[in-house]
């Protein structure tokens, strides 16, 4: 018998259940794209019937990190850039948890870039939402890893000389098995993509375009947008890595040319998740680690029985 009865409850959940009756007002600015992520996540979790108490939402620092304050579930609001390594361990310890990690473009592609590469490489089973608004919001408008070249801010008064990072290409190169881009201004697509990402057995990376009306001064930053799956001009196979990579390169470039391309870019279904690989290698316990501590029948080995090598 499990000691974690919220897990696998498999019940009808109203989306209201994900709204905490505790913080009356989000700290996000009016018109902020972050509201779009929150809505899409609530919609996706309701669609999947996930109990709020089987979800662990692990967030980083920044406006995006507040997501766990406004979404009702187990929440873990961590440190800047480190949501992914923390999330990885929670999933390995209790694989039944629905682990979702989230953070901003500075958090995930800048300070946490190393963890992003390695979490993708190892293909940990979780959805990772990156709120991409091309700017540092909470620290008041500095240039971020996804800001366009030439971006001016108080710290880049002459315009940034740096080209922006390519988040989709980086994810697929590192080893992510589901890579998509969606936008807060397209709530239906966003919810669909989150559902797919959460259901995906492996590392699902969603670059979520969240307009910043305060620092980019543009609430319509990502309007109009094109869904590459809906438009005949963009024929490519999301299961073909080479075609996907080409499409990602084009998508990343065109964003800075005023063309907002969104949709699914890569979806690999046959690669086992890290947890499965580790289990296959005999390095994961049969009984989830978190359950062992509550199982009265679990046998705890003693070091006393391991001493032969020392005699």
């Amino acid at each position: 018998m499990s000691s974690f009865n919220a897990i696998g409850a498999d019940r009808d959940v109203e989306r209201d259940e994900y709204t905490p009756a505790i913080e009356p007002q989000a700290t996000w600015c009016p018109g902020c794209g972050d509201f779009g992520v929150l809505k899409a996540l609530k919609g996706a979790m309701a669609e999947l019937g996930r109990d709020p108490e089987e979800i662990l939402l692990v967030t980083g620092i920044g406006c995006s990190g507040k997501l766990s304050s406004y979404f009702e579930s187990y929440g873990l609001h961590t440190i800047h850039g480190r949501a992914l390594p923390i999330a990885r361990a929670t999933k390995l310890t209790n694989p039944g948890l629905e682990v979702v990690a989230a953070g901003g473009d500075g958090d995930g592609y800048g300070i946490g870039g190393n963890h992003f590469l390695h979490t993708a490489r190892e293909n940990h089973d979780m959805a990772y939402i990156v709120f991409n608004n091309e700017i540092f919001g909470l620290t008041k408008g500095q240039t971020s890893p996804t800001s366009p070249k030439g971006h001016e801010s108080k710290i880049q008064p002459h315009g940034s000389a740096k080209s922006p990072i390519r988040p989709l290409s980086t994810a697929v190169t590192a080893g992510a098995t589901y890579v998509a881009r969606t936008a807060a201004v397209n709530p239906n697509q966003a919810q669909e993509i989150l559902v797919e990402a959460i259901e995906h057995d492996g590392f699902a990376h969603i670059d979520f375009l969240t307009q910043c009306p305060t620092w980019n001064k543009d609430a319509k930053q990502y309007v109009p947008y094109i869904d590459v799956q809906q438009d005949d001009d963009y024929e490519f196979d999301t299961a073909d890595r080479r075609e996907a990579e080409e499409m990602m390169q084009r998508t990343e470039r065109s964003l800075y040319e005023g063309e907002v391309l969104t949709g699914r870019f890569y979806h690999e279904t046959d690669r086992p998740s890290y947890g499965e690989e580790k289990r296959e290698a005999g390095e994961m316990p049969d009984e989830p680690l978190a359950e062992q501590y509550h199982d009265d029948d679990h046998e705890w080995e003693r070091s006393y029985d391991l001493l032969d090598a020392h005699k």
Binding site: S3, F4, N5, A6, I7, A9, D51, P52, E53, E54, L56, I61, S68, S69, E72, S73, Y74, G75, L76, H77, T78, I79, T90, N94, G96, L97, A290
Partner: peptide
């Protein structure tokens, strides 16, 4: 512990 029914809370570095 996350996953327990009736135990949800937010842990934060704030």
């Amino acid at each position: 512990i996350p996953g327990q029914a009736g135990g949800r809370f937010l842990a934060t570095g704030n």
